[in-house]
Design a binder for these strands. Structure first.
Lengths: 199, 199, 199, 199
DNA sequence: TATGAATGAGTTTTCATTCAT
DNA sequence: GATGAATGAAAACTCATTCAT
């Protein structure tokens, strides 16, 4: 569980950026709305209003709606990928490392529901697929690789397939959890099961 | 593998309805476009053009875009749910039954990529969440229940959690497979792994 | 009050036409809807549905929406003008004749609210002004003339102006009565006053 | 006749606002067209064109056609009700007051034909009845009350009925005058008669 | 005569984006 | 940087009317 603390410290630093710059403010507002209404159903007008900024001024920071989205994703990635993947950087060296990483990831997902709702909104949206892939493909590959190495070291034969399956399963669990309206998804039980099965 | 054949026969019958009625034609066109462009980015105009029908006439068949979507999903469900879930109806009685069902499901998904792309497009779209849930929630529950019973009979303790995890994993695999552009996703390997793990 | 009975008999005859021909049926349906929704806001579709007739068939009877309106008005006029103006045909020879006619007119208006709502809907609609005038201008002129003669015989100086004012006043009272939603208009009191003043 | 002058001064001031703000310009254009073509038959497109403004921009000022209408009426009311009812504010204390008020009202109606045509267009339009009533019902009630008090002070028994009749008669006269195409309506004679009768 | 599918122009409304201030 | 008026293209939807059957 030490790992966990290390990661929590990182989180703490990230969260302590109190004063938001204007563009961060716009991004936060956009995230909130894109997440709630979907990207296509959120107008720039609304983003401006939410951010307390004029419509015209939006375009001084982001020169199109697509660019705003791209920046949002990039900004999120910059702030969070370290968090999400820090456990991977030094390799997963034990079952505990594995469990910590997975649990920690879902902890982050839980605390960042806005973002993950948007994530799955975009994942299925052909029109923004490129923007989406540009940011998340490398990230997902890094994850698969991390788990792949873990399984390889454990001497598991189809380490690649197993890692790919695991990442897809995590995706599926997160999707189901995020999309379920009344918090009906039994995340904890499923998570225990997942760890038991994949560790 | 007999099961498989039975199901394939059903599929064959369904596919052999050659002459499409006008509303089916519209639905097919809508599916194609919703799938390619996303629901929000497909205009009724475009659906009409694709179906070779005037915009106004569309509304003689479906009185709104949402209703078109709902009908599309319902139509798909009517034609396919039997296919997808027939393996569940008499219970999964053996590991073979399990494997057949899962493999068969992915076979169907592979051959119905249009639809499944739309499925994951809608899954993340808050604006149509109700329509989506109305059709697919009961379907997914039936699946979870089917697997749950399977695990229960096998004497597995957390049969519910395991079934839920499995269905989420299937979702995740399908999502990844469907969204990957260049068919890069190693579906067969992942599928083998999944069956090995969950059977 | 004998007059009244004579007129009521006429009314009775008119009302006893039980079996409506197809075009009358359409006209009745149109009247009902035009009255409730306004002419512009009633679609031919809706008229067809209300009449239990197909949209296409409507056009076998009336070759346009305007023509349907014109026919409706003409049909009403044919059936009702006799009723409304019968009191005028032999001249108003006494104060009783006057009172009977006016009261009788409002009795008819009360029992024909549908029509009069449409009447005032059309009266202010520039787009159908011609159709409207074509039917009602002569009718109104006949009324003014009738009252004009009445006042002339009574030796009143400005008999024309007085008759015109009376007819306008009747119009105004009927308009207010018809348009008032909750039957708030004190029709009886106003009518008594009108008769006292103009007889 | 002093009263009259006071009121004329007010009118003069109101009319001397030369430079129209953009929303006033739109309202003026809408009034012109609604009046000429009827509310239902005037498209927002046309209003935009008449105002020399883009269709989209219209919606920066009024967020729907109904709202444009409501604003138009409210704007008119704000500018004019004082004018129309100023004679009532201090009570009608003499026959002269009465005559002045009525004549002055028709003077205003004559000079504001656009508006009054729209008024009677809306009066009969069920679809906008609520908007219409919201603005004019209180105004009309104030009028009835004003005349009611006048008759009460004169010791007339059915002062309420008489006032209601008068206001309806004024409505009827105005309606007839406004709707008559070739200025055939003998307004002056009718007005003299009305004043003689109701003063 | 009867049907209702089909049309296409029209309606209200939205929205990303630009631009003068 | 900041504003919000302005634009124009496009969206969903309606409707009088026509026409093949």
């Amino acid at each position: 569980m030490q790992e966990n603390n290390k990661i929590d410290n990182l989180k703490y630093k990230a969260a302590s950026n109190k004063a938001l710059s204007r563009d961060e403010l716009i991004i936060e507002s956009a995230l909130k709305l894109f997440s709630k209404l979907g990207f296509e159903n959120t107008s720039m007008q609304l983003v401006a209003k939410e951010a307390g900024v004029s419509k015209g001024n939006l375009y001084n920071y982001f020169n199109s709606k697509d660019h705003l989205l791209e920046s949002l994703l990039a900004h999120w990635a910059k702030k969070n990928i370290e968090l999400y993947s820090s456990g991977l950087n030094y390799g997963l060296k034990s079952v505990d490392d594995f469990e910590n990483l997975v649990r920690y990831n879902f902890k982050l997902i839980k605390s960042d529901k806005y973002f993950w709702k948007l994530y799955y909104n975009l994942a299925g949206q052909p029109s923004v697929n490129k923007i989406f892939m540009k940011v998340f493909y490398p990230f997902k590959m890094k994850y698969i690789l991390g788990f792949s190495n873990y399984y390889k070291h454990k001497g598991i034969e189809n380490y690649n397939a197993k890692a790919t399956l695991l990442v897809s399963a995590i995706d599926g669990v997160a999707l189901s959890y995020i999309m379920m309206i009344n918090n009906e998804y039994p995340l904890n039980e499923v998570l225990n099961e997942l760890i038991k099965q994949y560790k």
